[in-house]
Design a protein around this nucleic acid. Sequence first.
DNA 1: CTTATTTTCATACCAAAGTATCATTTTTAA
DNA 2: TTAAAAATGATACTTTGGTATGAAAATAAG
Lengths: 159, 159
Amino acid sequence: MTKLKFFLQIHKAIIIYGISLALLLLILKWLELRFIIFDYSLEIYIGAIAFIFTGLGIWLALKLSKPKIKTLVVEKEVFVPRSENFILNTSLIAELELSKRELEILNLMALGLSNDEIAAKIFVSLSTVKTHNQNLFVKLDVKRRTQAIEKAKRLNLIP
Amino acid sequence: MTKLKFFLQIHKAIIIYGISLALLLLILKWLELRFIIFDYSLEIYIGAIAFIFTGLGIWLALKLSKPKIKTLVVEKEVFVPRSENFILNTSLIAELELSKRELEILNLMALGLSNDEIAAKIFVSLSTVKTHNQNLFVKLDVKRRTQAIEKAKRLNLIP
DNA sequence: CTTATTTTCATACCAAAGTATCATTTTTAA
DNA sequence: TTAAAAATGATACTTTGGTATGAAAATAAG
């Protein structure tokens, strides 16, 4: 049942075309029998058929042709953050004696987190974060977190 | 000269169709003259013509129909190292309605300057800087200067 | 020339950041 | 295992940052 339905749906155009063709031939036969056909010259008769079937062909082609997919590649500039070509300056980290925790906090700082948020994120107290900050600022020789971020980014200590 | 060439190129399919039609009629006429045609029944004759012109119609339709363009957008990531060749996102600046002064302050912020230092640098009062900051934070939808810096860098509003 | 926008500034207040100092607990490495 | 380094935490205090509100010049746009 469903298979037949599917077949009908797919080949609808072909079926209509077949029926049209049959109908046309029937009409022609009828006309022939009625001798009306002989009132016109063969050329006009052929021309009419040619015209009709050309139309049918065009219609068929338009119905059955699969859409020509034209792939339009749009190059969208995705500004890839530095993380891809970021090379951590490990030697400088060692030189400045930055600890793991300090570096971790530095990264979170650069993401715009407040001291409170950092404390919550790494499960330590606000005091601890502040202490790390102090040490960090001394080691980086800066006075503010914004300076620390700027310097750290510039020196490839953070992405 | 060029106009004729252009016309030919555009209507190539139509011209070929016309010529084909003329040729076919000529062949038919010739066949008719040779009395070969009467060897076959009219139905087969008509059927052949119908078949041929259907084919022509299909061919014509495929040639002339504009391709049903299905635009497939492929996002191609273009790597842009931000630090080296920074391209200011002017459209976004316009979209966010960031003023010159706000952008200027944003840049100084990112360099790690305090509000006092910014005020001194651009010869305005601390209050003014704070007001600019407020508007800036609202426009960027952030709560802190560090967040503003992070977002602005990410969106290429500042280097 | 008038209207809208930008820039400017002030005050008061609260929240967050930073400083200083001290102290305890882990980790790490000699 | 023991000293050094790193991580944690507290308290008290100062400075800076951020919010809210209001308003006056300066500049741009129509």
